[in-house]
Design a protein around this nucleic acid. Sequence first.
DNA 1: GTCTATAGATAGATAGAC
DNA 2: GTCTATCTATCTATAGAC
Lengths: 215, 215
Amino acid sequence: MTSVEEPADPGERVRDPARTRAEILDVATREFARAGYDGARVDEIAARTRTTKRMIYYYFGGKEQLFTAVLERAYGLIRDAEQQLDVEHLDPVTAIRRLAGLTFDHCERHPDFVRLVGIENVQGAGRPGRTGSPALDVIRRILAAGQESGVFRAGVDAVDLYAVITSFCFFRVANRHTFGTLFGRDLLDAERRAHYRSMLSDMVVAYLTAEPTPG
Amino acid sequence: MTSVEEPADPGERVRDPARTRAEILDVATREFARAGYDGARVDEIAARTRTTKRMIYYYFGGKEQLFTAVLERAYGLIRDAEQQLDVEHLDPVTAIRRLAGLTFDHCERHPDFVRLVGIENVQGAGRPGRTGSPALDVIRRILAAGQESGVFRAGVDAVDLYAVITSFCFFRVANRHTFGTLFGRDLLDAERRAHYRSMLSDMVVAYLTAEPTPG
DNA sequence: GTCTATAGATAGATAGAC
DNA sequence: GTCTATCTATCTATAGAC
């Protein structure tokens, strides 16, 4: 044996596989988000990493699996954020505002996540394996509490509400360029961030507290 | 000269260039929407047309310009639809519901349009040349009328409102796959169409008619 | 586990006859 | 204007030395 506890001689590079894997994922996330699945280049990813293309195939198997790994990690991130939501002690209006704010903030801080989801949708069917969302359970409880106490209207579905909230948060990021070109307004302008953040909650709360539309 | 008014002999094919051009655009629209810009194949487009690949280059110059032409036509379609909006004679609430309904219907009937816009955004900056939207002027007038008559709150911006309306209409189409996988619900399910259509208007109207949130 | 070199497939684009 | 055949570049993926 060459060495027991001591790190080997400098010639033998003791690289951390987990670290290399994570670095590849970081770079791949940016590259896929930048150019789409088919537009992304494995060579480009390798070049921006401290490892080589061969290692990408060694660790992940191929471009397809790398893309899947990138997606899984991105989904895990928002999942974690949603899991940390603690709104049980809040009144329903404040609770739903907090949830909307969290979704808004996550998309704001992780635009690549939004783009990747869009790319996955262009690419084809969503890969199976992922299911549900911590946020959904939170919304269900908030809706139930709000309806019970009479501040929320009845008959609002949790999945629908989550779709509406996510729509706006996604749109700002995903359609930033065309919307900016068409209307001369940058939806991600930092100066308008707080405005859009509260507008989203205002709209959701207005809907939840309004009298149901007849018809 | 071979012939004056009469169509030439069968050996000389008198094809309609405008028709060929339109057919290429139709097929290209589907192909780009299906696979994204880099995923789309010029060969595939040609194969699904009654003409050849050479003609695509002859008419459009290249893949890039073909994609631009596809986008221009798609934008033109919604522009036309919006231009035909006639809501001047309606009360503000009905008017804004009609506008939201039109946007909703257009995305429903032209899912390729939504996908193409998403792809354009992934691809990079929105191409210049397009600007404004007939719907925006319509919204401006509706908002002004509604605020003047006191049914709408003040301080709501037309561009923001259009963004919100479009968000939901786009999201249903653009994120159908991943959302369906995650939540087991098809946002384009025909049975839920009417529900989502009115839900969007309900939300917008609730926001516009609610008391402004203090803060 | 890490590198270089290269295989193998396929894409966008064009030449050139008719 | 329309066709066939092909060029050239490039990309994913892998072989093989170390």
